[in-house]
Design a protein around this nucleic acid. Sequence first.
DNA 1: AAGATTTTTTGAACCTGTTCAAATTTGAAC
DNA 2: GTTCAAATTTGAACAGGTTCAAAAAATCTT
Lengths: 229, 229
Amino acid sequence: MTPAPSPKAEATRARILHEALARFREKGFDATTMRDIAQAAGMSLGATYYHFESKEALVMAFYEESQEALQDRIPEAMAAHRDLASRVREVIRLRFEQFQPYRAMLGALFRNAADPQHPLSPFSPATKGIRDRAIAHFEEAVRGGDVKVPKDLQPHLPRLLWMYQMGLILFWIHDRSEGQARTWTLLDKSLPLIVSALKLARLPLMGPVRGAAIDLLTTVLEPEPASPA
Amino acid sequence: MTPAPSPKAEATRARILHEALARFREKGFDATTMRDIAQAAGMSLGATYYHFESKEALVMAFYEESQEALQDRIPEAMAAHRDLASRVREVIRLRFEQFQPYRAMLGALFRNAADPQHPLSPFSPATKGIRDRAIAHFEEAVRGGDVKVPKDLQPHLPRLLWMYQMGLILFWIHDRSEGQARTWTLLDKSLPLIVSALKLARLPLMGPVRGAAIDLLTTVLEPEPASPA
DNA sequence: AAGATTTTTTGAACCTGTTCAAATTTGAAC
DNA sequence: GTTCAAATTTGAACAGGTTCAAAAAATCTT
């Protein structure tokens, strides 16, 4: 796809991204100008655009890099937690920890969350690669957890948990309480409920209910387009 | 607040809005330029800005006007439906019917849905007036319905139903299926579930569960700032 | 190393939302 | 009808994201 990984342009790219993020963190996404970034990186505006298609592409690169960085920390984190709630909580906690310095600017990323067509949306085709890896974390959390998940729910659960995380992140971004305390309260109140519901879902009588819920789910979830040969 | 309703500026305003909406419908929000609109309305760009603070203000005016227009149709619609599911469905159906011609451009309104601070977000302080009236429709639907709602849930239900509607609208806007068939499927599958859950919620054993759910709810819902005297 | 080719960089636009001071028009008071 | 203030309109800017042809630098070929 990309013609070549490029030799040392990689360094320039990294420098631009670095300078951009520093400014995003400090003054926010909107207040930072592409001209600011170009100047900080010591190059012309046009050159900056040679390395990044758009201002938003910078945020995308950040998103990508973040996912990369988290990748490594999941295994050890999972090794330290046994029960499902703790495992899921840990995945989410790590993400928050990582996003912390960028909380303000993340508004810019999630501004477009509601438009699944927008490249920057966490739900867009453009972010599928990142999304899939993020979902894999929850797959991992569930797999090694202590809760037996019904067969029919199994293929959906990781994605559902990822969506749950997305909701929390959205809440967190706009949470103006001290230290985002309300988000943590929400997490600690909702996660146990989810896990309880999961345990309840295994009860014999619950078959039909589960069926209805999953039926609903498949209606909502876009059918993944079959990748052509 | 507003100094005066203005005499005939109202007509100019209406003309601008009319021309703007025609173009939004035809070419979409983004592809329509403020210069286009000014020209269509037969006036200078600056004059257009005299009547509308911003391009988004045009969408806001549309949103406002829509709410106004729906207001009248609710009573008769409710008179024709007895059971709760039908009543709620009717409120939602009316909204879809009204938004139909603007479906494409509504992406622009809901683009900012995820940012509760953004004026155009249906969740923003700026849209509270409209929102409150929309919620009132659901209040009406519940009040005259055939389902007895538990006391502790009562104050929350209308808003919850409104949020449910918002979710459906969001889904609908991005639903690319023929005639947005998937949205209707979703509605017809989810609404009965909601009503069933509501009926179940009244069962004696459900008290604690309901309590936990409502507790969670009040954590999520921003505490409305007390209006100062 | 000269020439050819590709990658980077530059600088000058362009576009579109928005702002604003300076007219112009309108309407009320006299 | 003249006068004055307020409401409206104009035209010319500005800002910031984006584009692009042309120049410069780096890399490759022989």
